[in-house]
Write a protein that binds this DNA or RNA. Sequence first.
DNA 1: AAAATGAAAAATGTATACAATATTATCTAA
DNA 2: TTAGATAATATTGTATACATTTTTCATTTT
Lengths: 206, 206
Amino acid sequence: MQKKEAPNNIQAYETLRDQILNGKIPANTKLTETMLADKLNISRTPIREAIIRLEEEGLVKNKYVYIPSETDIRHIFQVRSILEGFAAKYSADFISTESLNKLKEYIKTARNGDDNDKLKANYLFHQTIVEETHNPEIVKIINKMQSIIYLMRKTVTLQHRPHLIDEHEEICQEIENGNGEKAEKLVQDHLAKDLEFSINRLGITN
Amino acid sequence: MQKKEAPNNIQAYETLRDQILNGKIPANTKLTETMLADKLNISRTPIREAIIRLEEEGLVKNKYVYIPSETDIRHIFQVRSILEGFAAKYSADFISTESLNKLKEYIKTARNGDDNDKLKANYLFHQTIVEETHNPEIVKIINKMQSIIYLMRKTVTLQHRPHLIDEHEEICQEIENGNGEKAEKLVQDHLAKDLEFSINRLGITN
DNA sequence: AAAATGAAAAATGTATACAATATTATCTAA
DNA sequence: TTAGATAATATTGTATACATTTTTCATTTT
C-alpha cells in the first residue's frame, strides 16, 4: 500500500502557510487567487480553499497577509503568558521525570549548540512545559500562536537576549522543586521580557 | 446605497453553524456536500467552503458533526476556567462602573426573568467579565467555545443548579471589593460546579 | 484641481462537468 | 459462513466557464 498524497488544497494551504511564516510572502501582500494558482500550477478552487483556512487561522485577513500590530502582539502574549504560566504551575506538581530531563537537556543544548540547535531547543523547552498539561486545547491554542511566537523567538535567541537561558534554568529548577507558584511567576516574567526585547528589536509599531 | 448581501458560502456557513448548535443537525451527522447543496439550494462550491470553515472552527471533524467527549469538555472547561479566572482577577482591578452595574443588573434579571431572560443574563454576566480584559484574543478563544458552553449553560440554568446566582453575586462582590485573587478563585470554583452538574445531567460519557 | 461619473479591467463568487477516491454491495473461493 | 476480491455507487477533489462584484483609471463636471 502506498501513502496517499494530500489533496492540492491542503498542500497549497501548507506551502502558503510556510511561505508566509518564513517571510517569502511578505506581510501585507494581497493574495490574488489567479496569481497563486499560476504560481502553484493548480486551479483557483484549491487555492480558495487554502485561503479560507489561512483566514480562519488568522494569518490572512481579508485577502491580505496579516502582520499583527504591537497591540495585537501584546494581546497574544498575554494569552500565552496566562496559559504557559498555568502549564508551569501544573508541571511543578505533575511533571514526569522524562520531561524534566528533557528540559535539562534543552537547556544544555541552548548553551552549547549552534544557532539552529538553540532555536529548536528553546522552542522545545516551552513546548514541553505546555504539553505537560496534557490538555490538547491548550496545546492547540499555543500552536496557533506559533507563527508570531516563532518570529519573537528568532529574535530573542539569535540576538542573544541576556539571561534567557538562565531564566529557563530557574524555571526548570522551580518546577523540579515542586514550587508551582514560583514557576508560574518566573514563566510570566520570562515571557514579558521576551516580548519587550522583541518588540524593541523588531521595531514593531501600531 | 443598499446593503450588500453576504455571499452564499458565508450564509451557508452561518446557517449550518446555527443548525448544528441548536441541534437541528444532530451530532455525528455525516455532512455530504450534495445533500447540503440540495437542502440550501446552492451548488457544492459554497458548501465546501462552509464546511472548511466549520472544520477549522472544530464544529465538524472529518465531515462529521463533532460532539466532544467528556474528556474533551473537561479540557475545554479547563481553558475556560484559566482564562475567565484571569478575567475576573483583572476585573477586580480595572472594571468600569458601567460594567459593574451591568453585572448587578444581570444578577437581578437572572433572579426574576423568565427562562429565556435568565439564559441570556447568565451569558452576559460571564461575557462582561471576559470582555473587561479588553483582550480580543481572549474573547475570541472563549467565543469559539460558546457552542459547548451554550449547551452547558442551558442545562445549569434551565435545570436550576442550586446557588448558581448566589455564586454570581459573590463573584460580583469580590470584583467590586477589588479582591482579585478571591474573585479568580470563585470563578474557577463556580465553573467547576457548572461542569460537574452539566456532565451529570447531560449524561455525557467517553 | 477636486469630486463625480462611468466604462474597462480585474478579481471574486458560483455552478457544473469531469476526474480521482472512498465506500458499499456483490460475488467468489476457502 | 466469511475473508477477500471486484464491480457498482457515492462522495470528494479539481478545473473551468460564466456571473457578479470590486477596483482601476480615464473622462467629465463643478
